[in-house]
Amino acid sequence: MTNTDALKPYRIDVPQADLDDLRDRLHRTRWSDDLPGTGWERGVPVAYLKELATYWADTFDWPAQEALINRYPQYTTVIDGQNVHFLHARSTRADATPLLLIHGWPGSVVEFLDLIEPLTAPEPDQPAFHLVIPSVPGFGFSGPITEPGWTDTRTAAALAALMARLGYDRYGVHGGDIGAFIGPAIGRANPGHVIGVHANALVTFPTGDPADMAALTEAEQLRLKAMKNFQDDMSAYMQLQGTRPQTLAHALTDSPAGQLAWIVEKFKEWTDASKELPEDAVDRDRMLANISIYWFTDTARSVANSYYERFHDASMWAPKPPATVPTGVAVFATGDFAIRRFAEQAHNITHWSEFYRGGHFPALEAPDLLTGDIRAFFTTLTS
């Protein structure tokens, strides 16, 4: 039974003073310059960032985006001493399956807005879901973490407690990016409650077995090569957040242009490679709504610290027996390095899909593909 006394209704309402402060800071940005003849390979070009920052300051309509989120019931609750914000969109269908949707970095609850209607109010022949969409503790409207120690394991326990508090005894989980760490952790710790875990951007590591390496398909070899390129040339953000989060926080907390560059770089590098600019892959206003949440909630320090915890949590990387909960994996065209034979070392893989469009943010880039794959996976399971 839902413990309603522990839930507080919530509605996003960013003060006008915060909007004015954002606009003023963007107008007063002291811009860097580019080396002649360089482009995105060295980071975000200043001409692109200036244009996007001007749009954010003078054209972007935050109240409209705020209203889109506020269409859905939202609550906050305190779990393990930490405030947790979440959207709770219930289906009218009696046979609906509770489903926890977990965003990653640099994401937020905004990622999943285009999935809500298709999953809660589908056609009669399609499965329906009750959706619980939290701001991961330390992110967004959950607000900053208030103490060290918020590892993925602790976050997983908090989100499992949230589902219990809502009265959901049997439920599914979907997560991408860090959600693809947290989601499987929930399933591993709560196999009696989790009917299945679905993930995109699942991280898999080579087994070291020469036979496994020799058996890789051409597509898998390309994925492994892309993963090495990511580690060699695209992971500076992770190293900095995972080792010196407080230093980074000073820059991102003071400068919205800095926060914009820090996140938009990932929307460029991780979205569908066939698209020239981030807004060719993801709606520009939706992308800026996501970035605005990071700015308005002052969570740069907290978010960076989540990487520090991940880097320094020895138990997370310790060998574990394979999970037993059925797991479905969706692999998208860009920035997705999962390889099935490696994934099966740690997960009970019962569903595997590979798509040839979309990237790291499929809920924003290809919501039709992600919705369809979530439906297909959970249709194979029984509660």
Rank of each mutant, 00 (worst) to 15 (best):
D61A: 07
L222E: 13
A199V: 15
L87I: 15
T324W: 01
L52A: 02
G37I: 07
I339P: 00
G140H: 02
T217V: 08
M234S: 08
E265H: 07
M287R: 08
A343Q: 05
Q345Y: 01
G208A: 08
G107Q: 04
D20F: 00
T324L: 04
Q231E: 13
L19I: 14
T120L: 13
S235C: 12
D18Q: 15
A160Q: 05
A158Q: 07
T334S: 15
A257K: 01
W62C: 03
L101Q: 10
Q82T: 14
E279C: 02
D177L: 03
Q82P: 14
G258E: 08
L381P: 13
A47N: 13
A273K: 15
Q65R: 13
D283H: 01
G43R: 06
T271M: 09
V14I: 15
E354A: 09
T207A: 06
K320P: 09
A94N: 12
T247F: 03
D95M: 06
W150A: 02
A226R: 15
S91K: 06
P9H: 11
P73V: 10
P9I: 12
V46H: 09
N3Y: 05
V197D: 00
S91C: 09
P191C: 01
L49G: 02
L131K: 05
A251K: 06
A330C: 13
F139T: 07
V14C: 03
A211E: 13
F355P: 02
A257P: 06
P326C: 09
D368P: 08
Y356K: 10
G43A: 07
L224F: 05
Y10L: 06
T297K: 11
W295M: 07
E123I: 00
P191R: 00
A273N: 15
P210R: 09
Y75N: 01
D283S: 02
R11H: 11
L166F: 11
A121H: 14
G242N: 08
A211D: 12
N229W: 01
L370A: 06
D80T: 08
L113E: 08
Y356Q: 08
F86V: 03
V203F: 08
T54H: 13
L87S: 01
I293A: 01
I263F: 13
A94R: 15
A164D: 10
H88W: 11
H351R: 04
A330L: 04
D283W: 02
A236Q: 12
T29I: 08
R188P: 00
S353Y: 00
T76I: 13
F181Q: 10
Y75M: 01
L19P: 11
F342Q: 01
A67C: 06
V109F: 13
H130M: 11
N83D: 15
F86A: 04
A161G: 14
T4S: 14
Y48R: 11
Q74E: 04
W31G: 12
V132P: 11
P45G: 05
A333K: 15
P9N: 10
G37V: 06
K228Q: 15
A89L: 04
L252Y: 03
P322Y: 00
A6G: 07
A318C: 13
L131C: 07
H198M: 10
R341Y: 02
L7S: 11
